[in-house]
Amino acid sequence: MNQITNFMSNDHRHCDELFAAAEEAAGNGDLVACRSRFQTFLAAMTQHFAMEEQALFPAFEEASGNTMGPTRVMRLEHQQMRDVLAALADALAAEDLEEYLGEAETLLILMQQHNIKEEQMLYPMSDQFLGNSGDAVIQAMRELREGAST
């Protein structure tokens, strides 16, 4: 009964690893590696946001009858993260790895306090509300992910 929690938490961990790899390259002063790793990270984040905003959140809102509650705040935080991701891209365009590291530190905290809310509360509640239709939501999210990578 915690299939959504597991599926989505694993995707968070995947994004974390890509984040750490790009940050490590920035820490080593390796602009080329940082650029390519950041692109991989950015793609994974964009995909994750899409899975939530297009499949999971609408399903949660429908099942719970609440569109102004937790999912609204989650969408707002996605926008905040998109702003920091843009600042990271700007830092790479300006070849400023110090700036990249400062923005990365900020993104890490922003991203993880967001993940804590999702993994500790929103995903477990989604599992409960959606029950057996959770399978269909995961399937829809898989299709969004595969659609994005082809």
Binding site: S64, N66, G69, P70, V73, K117, M121, L122, M125, F129
Partner: peptide, 11 residues
């Protein structure tokens, strides 16, 4: 457990 009990109202 009910969704209205969950408040993420930001900081």
């Amino acid at each position: 457990m009910n969704a209205p009990g969950l408040s993420f109202e930001q900081a």
